[in-house]
Amino acid sequence: MILTGRSDLPLDKDEHSRFLPWLIAFMVFLSILAVAGMLVLNATASRWDVGVRGNLTVQIVPTDDAAADEARLNEVLTVLATAPEVARYDALDETRLIRLLEPWVGPSTEKGDLPLPRLIDVELKQATNFTSGDLGARLSERVKGVAIDDHRVWLDRLVRMIETFEALALVVLLFITMATVGTVVFTTRTGLAIHREAIEVLHLIGAHDEYIARQFASRALGLGIRGGLLGLVLALPTLWMLAHLAASLDERLLPDIGFGPWHWALLLAMPVSVALIAMTTAKVTVLKNLARML
């Protein structure tokens, strides 16, 4: 019946179902934005995670004695050189430190009287059992005034925040699904009431419930596909616009996220999923209602 398009019930003439494609288009539009948002957040978290995982900064708090500070630096570097978990370390020289401070103190070539800590960028080996705490303890034993800034701590907070947004997007998707199901149930029930007599005739000449339900399901699928495509057409330019807006932001904050084929497939699956949800909902609704007949 879906293939032939022939229906025993005049469902295509129903005024009450005319709004359904527009509503489904809106649902698909929202669901595509929600899923795209989830994908971006997920990719951002992964990039941050990959970029920061295993990195830490060793900070040597400055004193008035520059020579002593230099000796402490060398001592720290010696510990790092012998530490088994350290893959790489790089002590930042004064020029690079001043460049890091530029956003706050303005362009300068000399540090003047400003006490600057010595920073060492450390990368730990992958898949080691050592933690930054172990290394910190060993350094503190040997050298005083050493602090370890483990990026993991603030990264974890960011990731938790992103996970909260992802959960919110999932809740939005759930609401979209519920709203679609509710609308299709309502529309189908109205259709059942309008075509009650024709359904009764089909029933009395021996049509199975499945035969009648298939006609409603086929109609809902058709409307769902129409609405889904409309939603997709509306969502794609919106995504493109958002991507351009995001690109104008500081790219260090929001890394460039390119969608892969799987991401696109997932986005394109949204209209199909919503159409299938509409079809299944219509079928179940009809079957439940017909089960009350003799």
Binding site: E197, A198, D209
Partner: peptide
């Protein structure tokens, strides 16, 4: 019951034809 109904032909008094 559907299979039983298919064994019964009914001419309804009010015909019950599907007008569409």
């Amino acid at each position: 019951l559907s299979a039983l109904r298919r064994q019964i032909g009914v001419v309804f008094q009010e015909f019950k034809l599907l007008n569409h």
